[in-house]
């Protein structure tokens, strides 16, 4: 995974100005900021608000509405595990419990060494190869606790 860049107001300003003329520019801007910095830094909010003629509260309201926008930087790897029904039907919950125990973290938490953030997701469209997940954007199917542990060890 591309490591997140440290906060830079200049870089943020150039990201914002690249999208500012678009219809409904706020989501594209937030996605681009998160891609660059790994999260939406608090310091970015007033810059976005200013550029789009919105209040800071409005921008914060949008950032906090969507599950995907993070307020803090993630670990070096992001593991997303599907909690939805098709995966439940194939025993996803037991796999999730094993991952939480092994890594010592719950949902939305990052391991102490900063290696892995574990996030829940409701459906990845991999419902015929359940239980499913995604590691740094790469899809994983027919997960079991042992296989997932091996994948994680390899990534770390």
């Amino acid at each position: 995974m591309e490591p997140a860049a440290p906060w830079s107001p200049e870089r943020a300003a150039s990201i914002i100005s690249a999208h500012v003329g678009e219809e409904g520019a706020l989501l594209p801007i937030l996605h681009a900021l998160q891609e660059a910095f790994g999260h939406i830094p608090r310091a970015a909010v007033p810059l976005v608000a200013e550029a789009l003629n919105l209040t800071r509260a409005e921008v914060h309201g949008v950032v906090s509405f969507y599950h995907e926008f993070r307020a803090t930087p993630p670990g070096r790897h992001v593991l997303r595990l599907c909690r939805a029904e098709a995966c439940q039907a194939m025993g996803a919950e037991a796999v999730h419990d094993a991952v939480h125990r092994r890594l010592g973290v719950g949902w939305h938490e990052t391991t102490a060494d900063g290696a892995v953030t574990v996030e829940p997701v409701f459906c990845l469209g991999l419902c015929a190869v359940a239980p499913s997940g995604m590691l740094d954007g790469a899809p994983l199917g027919r997960l079991d606790a042992a296989g997932l542990a091996a994948t994680l060890d390899l990534a770390r």
Partner: peptide, 18 residues
């Protein structure tokens, strides 16, 4: 950005509007 409700057509439109 990970909101199930945006599959509902009117909230999808609001999301497109930013």
């Amino acid at each position: 950005a990970g909101a199930y409700i945006c599959g509902e057509e009117t909230s999808l439109l609001d999301s497109l509007e930013g």
